Simulated scan of single mutants.
Amino acid sequence: MAEANNIGPRRVSNAKDFGRVAVLMGGTSSEREVSLDSGSNCLEALKRQGVDAYKVDGIAALVDELVNKRCQRVFNILHGHAGGGEDGILQGLLDAFGIPYTGSDVLGSALSMDKIRTKQVWLSLGLPTPRYARLSRNSDVATAARDLGLPVIVKPACEGSSVGVTRVFKEADLKQAVDLAARYQGEMLMEQLVVGDELTVAVLGDTALPSIRIVPAGEYYDYHAKYKAEDTQYICPGLQGAAEDEIRALALEAFRTAGCSGWGRVDVMRDRASGKFYLLEVNTAPGMTSHSLVPKSAKQFGIEFDELVWRVLETSVPHAGQGAPRS
């Protein structure tokens, strides 16, 4: 049963007020295919509601649009790092051109894309996140694993969609895990594996939407379970009562303290033995595919997909009293 929608009325009532909207998708990151799928869904939702929206594939193509003044606003659904739209580079470009855009600004995007630095901020504020070690290609990974205690997770510090992630239960498997993570740009991260429930909380504006508990058919919620499998279970809300209130409040605080705004998704683990929550990461341009989590949570909250996409586009419009859009 859906929750009562208390997100408030639309702040933009006329589609023409958005101007011409470039829906930015695709790009060259490891998450290109997911971004194209997400972007196509968002583009069609905007068109159904009368928004003058069109597809732009990648930042290079967007630069041409900006130089030639063919768009007035950008709906960013470009996922990932290194050619993606979540690391602050795109946001800086749009700020320089004075073009409003959806989602977090330069600081929130850049910080949350880097899992290590996000954890450093959270830990400095006393927010719970698994213990970790920074890795380079030359690190003594065996010593790092012993210090943290097996099992651990090894992953790139600046990728999403479970790209390059390995769960390591034996020291002999560390080298293979590091070799996989090292295929991607940036530092690597080793963190304690939390055994328990995997949950996620979508944030829309100033509201944390109902949590989702993810139950994959296989052992882990990997790339296949996220985007391909039809037998992954999504239980929404993922928790009840005080625990649900706690995870939503924690997710909203984690989102804000990472400098994020507009919309996004916070991934959380709940330790099975203690019931304690551990923050994993923030996604500032989450997937909007048929398998994606933000639309599922929004629907539970009473927000259908087309309305969700409209509300995301509204994050590019300043609230009353905020002044002009970012520029």
Rank of each mutant, 00 (worst) to 15 (best):
G19Q: 05
E253P: 00
I89D: 07
Y101G: 01
M1Y: 13
A157Y: 02
N283G: 08
A285F: 00
V106S: 02
F75Y: 07
L111P: 10
L252Q: 03
S292V: 10
C260E: 01
V63R: 05
P210T: 15
Y234E: 13
G275F: 06
I77F: 05
G58N: 06
R256K: 15
S139I: 14
V312S: 12
S316C: 15
G88V: 05
Q91D: 11
M113F: 01
R134L: 11
W310F: 14
Y221V: 07
S35H: 08
R73F: 09
I247C: 09
K119D: 02
A4N: 13
T232N: 11
G186I: 04
G126S: 03
G164L: 04
F75M: 03
Y278F: 04
G196C: 07
D179Y: 00
A324L: 15
H79K: 09
E246W: 05
A320T: 09
V12C: 12
L66R: 09
N41F: 08
Q300R: 15
F18M: 07
D105G: 10
Q176I: 07
G126R: 02
A217R: 14
V194L: 11
F255I: 08
K55F: 10
R183Q: 14
V294Q: 06
V165M: 06
G275T: 06
I116H: 06
A217P: 00
I89T: 15
Y227P: 06
F305W: 08
L93S: 12
D206H: 14
V12F: 12
Q192Y: 02
S38Y: 01
N138C: 09
L189F: 04
V294S: 04
R10Q: 04
V21D: 07
A4K: 15
L90Q: 04
L180V: 08
G275V: 10
G287C: 07
F169M: 07
W122R: 11
D245I: 14
K296M: 05
L107C: 08
E304F: 08
P128H: 02
C42N: 03
I212H: 05
V178P: 00
M25Q: 13
T28F: 07
P318G: 13
F97H: 11
L135P: 04
K119L: 00
A45I: 07
V268M: 00
K119F: 02
T200P: 09
K296N: 03
P216K: 06
L313S: 14
T207R: 14
L280M: 14
E33S: 12
A61F: 02
E3C: 13
G26L: 01
N76D: 10
M188E: 03
A110T: 06
Y54W: 13
V163Q: 12
T289L: 11
G218F: 03
G205P: 11
I303Y: 12
M188N: 03
G196W: 02
R311A: 09
G160S: 14
L62F: 13
K226H: 10
T166E: 04
K155W: 13
D306Y: 13
S162H: 03
P9C: 09
S109H: 03
P130C: 02
Q120G: 00
F18T: 05
F169A: 08
G103C: 02
Y278K: 00
A217G: 04
A22G: 10
V178L: 11
A53Y: 04
M288L: 15
D173T: 11
G88F: 05
T129Y: 06
D306G: 12
L90C: 06
